[in-house]
Amino acid sequence: MQSLDEITQALARTLADRQLRVVFAESCTAGLAAATLASVPGISAYLCGSAVTYREQTKQDWLRVSAEDLARFTAVSEPVARQMAAGVLENTVEADVSAAITGHLGPDAPAELDGVVYVAVAQRQAQTVRVTSVERVVLATSTRSERQREATGVLLNCLKSSVEMDFV
């Protein structure tokens, strides 16, 4: 398995090779994905920023996540991850691609959501935004800080894979 640093360096190269700008919508990682990518010198040419939307109301206000979907599916769900990725890209006109993550890192998670994250990637196509991938991942680590780092790696890796497939 690649280290977080290796994933970050590979993603930075991929963004530069394809001349793509990215924006993040981060919930459970609380900005760690953007901060990790920002450690790469010169990344400001490709990193637009990150909306850290930890609370449900912030997801609604900043990213236009549906209150109905939050109530029906919870914040830790595929529909919410999709809306986060689409919303942040719609709000960041200079970005070409977005990646969003929402999940439950514990310790007081319901059993079915403990260590579960959803990652969505969206891309701008002409004047529209389209979600191109969504993944549900059960994290292997157990502590909150370990899970936050693992979730960051999952997010960056999903973004890299999606960009490599969709932007040839």
Rank of each mutant, 00 (worst) to 15 (best):
S162H: 10
L139Q: 07
L159E: 10
A120N: 07
A109H: 10
T36F: 00
P41K: 01
D108P: 10
R82N: 11
D108Y: 08
S162D: 12
N157T: 15
A95N: 11
A122L: 10
V80E: 01
S39C: 07
R64I: 01
E135F: 06
V121P: 12
P79Y: 12
Q125R: 13
I101R: 00
A33I: 01
P41M: 05
Q148A: 10
A151V: 05
V116Y: 02
T53V: 15
D96I: 02
A140G: 13
V131F: 03
E68F: 12
E68A: 15
S133P: 07
N91M: 13
V119H: 06
T132H: 08
E150C: 08
R124D: 03
V52L: 04
T102G: 00
V154P: 01
V119F: 05
A85W: 01
A85D: 04
A67G: 10
K160I: 14
F73K: 02
S66D: 06
R82V: 12
V121Y: 08
E68Y: 10
E135L: 14
L113K: 12
A140H: 06
Q57R: 12
L89N: 00
G115M: 02
A109K: 07
Y46F: 14
T141Y: 10
Q60H: 15
Y46L: 06
V129L: 03
Y54I: 09
T29V: 03
S145W: 08
E68K: 14
T92N: 02
A126Y: 13
C48S: 09
L32S: 11
C48P: 04
G49W: 05
R55Q: 15
A100L: 03
R130W: 12
V88Q: 05
V65D: 08
E146I: 05
T29M: 00
T152R: 08
S39L: 02
A30F: 03
S98G: 02
V40R: 11
T141G: 15
